[in-house]
Nucleic acid binder design. Structure first.
Length: 358
DNA sequence: GGTATTTGACCTAA
DNA sequence: TTAGGTCAAATACC
């Protein structure tokens, strides 16, 4: 048994080292002066990297099922991480049980939580209700040791009415335009306004703006994940995928489009990490990790990426994601709202900042 | 008057 | 013991 474990560990290290090596190769290709390297070559390298990590993760998963109890818990957290590259169901029942166990633990650090960082345009303020379509009530604020700004504590407005235990913490980072938002727990409430807030129409936006007298609440926001511990895959000069390696519950890798004119990053962030998360994408469901936007789906036309995302493509992915979701509000009605607001056949609203105005 | 926010006190995990 | 998280009374806002 122990011998087998060591063999597995050797293989694991080998796979990880291979992944590292391939990543270095890719990095060199990306930044070498030679422009002869084809896009396909880079994609092949990326595929190899993903395969290496997938193999490593499978081995970890095997160890998790065979190992000691503590090991299982540790691994279950790892498998719950978005850094899982596997497209298959990444966790078995045992691991799910471990996660449930984790969630009921009274220990703070084992709470079901996931973090995202948001970069906000100048003047934008994230209050309790803005940003993710849920209604939040602030219940506390605390000065955090070493942090320049206090941390705000929010809980779901429907905590008492519907017993929703979702909370979030908003920490403004030292870098003034960045907020780190940590979600804890999942929404069990039904928020009628959720989808519309997540995809506000312009008229809705205006109504919202009129409602809030505080000028700070009336500004557009732009999101950008800047995870502190992340793997970044760069698919050319304008396209990066950043995957948080530390935050155990973050749902999706972030897709970065460096072109300043493109708001697609915001689009994806808003629509896939906010509309469908955190409640829709239950972090404890294995399929949450399935969501993969292959770079191939973003048909590249030179430097200018055109979004080839078809409704059917996304429907397939999202339906797979939500079909096993435990969240009571994970229903296709929200997806309908999503698609109602996105015209995939005509202009993708990447150049309409108002679309993202909250 | 109802609802949301602020803030000091209290609780508890580490 | 301490820092992070929550409670709840006071206050503000609509």
């Amino acid at each position: 048994m122990e011998g087998n474990l060591k063999l597995e560990q050797v293989g694991l290290i080998s796979d990880l080292m291979q992944g590292e090596e391939l990543t270095k190769k890719l990095h060199n290709l990306m930044f070498s002066s030679s422009s002869s390297t084809s896009h396909e070559t880079k994609l092949v390298l990326i595929d190899k990297i993903l395969v290496s990590y997938e193999k490593a993760l499978k081995k970890l998963k095997w160890e998790a099922n065979m190992g000691e109890e503590d090991t299982k818990i540790t691994i279950s957290k790892m498998m719950d991480s978005p850094c899982s590259f596997t497209n298959e169901s990444p966790r078995g029942e045992v691991l799910d049980q471990e996660i449930k166990h984790k969630n009921v633990s009274k220990k703070r650090k084992t709470m079901d939580s996931w973090t995202k960082q948001m970069k906000v345009c100048s003047g934008t303020v994230l209050d309790g209700s803005l940003g993710d379509g849920y209604n939040w009530r602030k219940y506390g604020q605390k000065d955090i040791l070493g942090a320049k700004f206090p941390r705000g504590y929010y809980r779901c407005t429907h905590r008492h009415a519907q017993g929703c235990l979702a909370t979030k913490q908003v920490q403004k980072s030292d870098e003034e335009s960045t907020y780190e938002i940590t979600y804890k727990g999942r929404h069990t409430c039904i928020q009628a306004s959720h989808a519309k807030k997540a995809f506000p129409s312009k008229s809705k936006t205006c109504m919202s703006e009129n409602k809030h007298h505080n000028h700070q609440k009336n500004k557009a926001q732009e999101e950008k994940i800047e995870q502190p511990h992340e793997t970044t895959f760069t698919f050319g000069p304008e396209f990066e995928v950043k995957i948080d390696l530390e935050t155990k519950e973050d749902i999706f890798p972030s897709f970065f489009f460096s072109s300043p004119s493109i708001g697609l990053e915001t689009m994806i962030e808003n629509h896939f990490t906010e509309t469908f998360s955190p409640a829709f994408l239950s972090p404890s469901t294995s399929e949450s990790n399935i969501f993969c936007l292959s770079p191939c789906n973003f048909g590249s036309s030179g430097l200018g990426l055109s979004v080839q995302t078809s409704e059917s493509d996304i429907t397939d992915v999202v339906s797979a994601t939500t079909s096993v979701n435990n969240s009571p509000i994970a229903n296709l009605d929200d997806l309908d709202l999503f698609f109602d607001n996105v015209d995939f056949d005509t202009d993708f609203p990447i150049n309409t900042p108002e679309y993202f105005t909250l």
